[in-house]
Amino acid sequence: MAEPALARPGDLDRHFWLSRGMARTLGIRFSDVMRDGRLSTHEFTDLVNTCRGCAMSDRCVGWMARAEAVGEPAPGFCEIRGILNRLGRNRPR
């Protein structure tokens, strides 16, 4: 049986901005969490590349437009929700 073909990663620029937008909607600023040492450059690169592999990225923009409040958890369809939710929970108040 043949191995399933891997999906081609999404556009780097698009997913950089989508991941940044999702984070900002959750009240997370990547520059702040990187400066604070809560996110390394390697983790950030992995985060964007994980986003590039998501088949649901078209839903992000709509979710960001409808998000009710800063601090709510990332949506279940988001491939980077784990790290976003962790960074959101550990955000200085």
Rank of each mutant, 00 (worst) to 15 (best):
M1G: 15
M1N: 14
A2N: 09
E3N: 08
E3Y: 06
A7P: 01
A7I: 11
R8D: 12
P9Q: 10
P9I: 13
R14D: 08
R14L: 11
H15W: 03
H15N: 13
W17C: 07
A23F: 03
R24Y: 07
R24Q: 13
T25M: 06
T25E: 09
I28L: 02
I28A: 00
R29Q: 11
S31W: 06
R35V: 05
R35C: 06
G37K: 07
G37L: 05
S40C: 04
S40R: 02
T41P: 10
H42R: 10
T45P: 01
T45N: 11
D46Q: 06
L47S: 08
N49E: 11
N49P: 00
R52L: 11
C54A: 01
A55Y: 04
S57C: 13
S57G: 15
R59M: 09
R59P: 01
R59T: 03
G62Q: 04
W63Y: 03
W63R: 11
R66E: 14
A69L: 12
V70G: 06
V70C: 00
G71H: 06
E72P: 02
P73N: 01
P73T: 07
P73Y: 01
P73R: 09
P75L: 15
G76W: 04
E79I: 07
E79N: 05
I80P: 04
R81T: 02
R81H: 14
G82L: 10
G82C: 00
R86S: 08
R86F: 12
R86A: 11
R89A: 12
R89E: 13
R93Y: 00
